[in-house]
């Protein structure tokens, strides 16, 4: 299971890394990046789901849930 960012939609709102710094970081332009390959454990699933809801561009998704 992993979190992914769709860069066709991401416009650098920065909510993902502001709210969930365990799952996302920022780049120099303020765009979000998944940490590592975005893999998450079951214990991070709630956080990941909240990140999906928090993104105003609907750019965050969970793969393999």
């Amino acid at each position: 299971m992993r979190v992914v960012i769709d860069y066709e939609r991401c416009t650098g709102n920065g909510r993902c890394y502001a709210l969930f710094p365990d799952l996302f970081g920022d780049d120099e332009s303020g765009y979000g990046q998944v940490i590592g390959d975005g893999s998450i454990g079951d214990d991070q699933l709630d956080e990941a789901r909240s990140a999906v809801v928090a993104c105003p561009e609907d750019a965050v998704a969970i793969e393999g849930e």
């Binding site: 709102n13 709210l19 105003p56």
Partner: peptide, 19 residues
């Protein structure tokens, strides 16, 4: 809170000064 509001607009013209 944090359910994705549109106050800063969205898409390519998303408010540059939001941060």
């Amino acid at each position: 809170a944090d359910r994705g509001h549109m106050t800063f607009g969205g898409g390519i013209h998303r408010c540059l000064g939001s941060h």
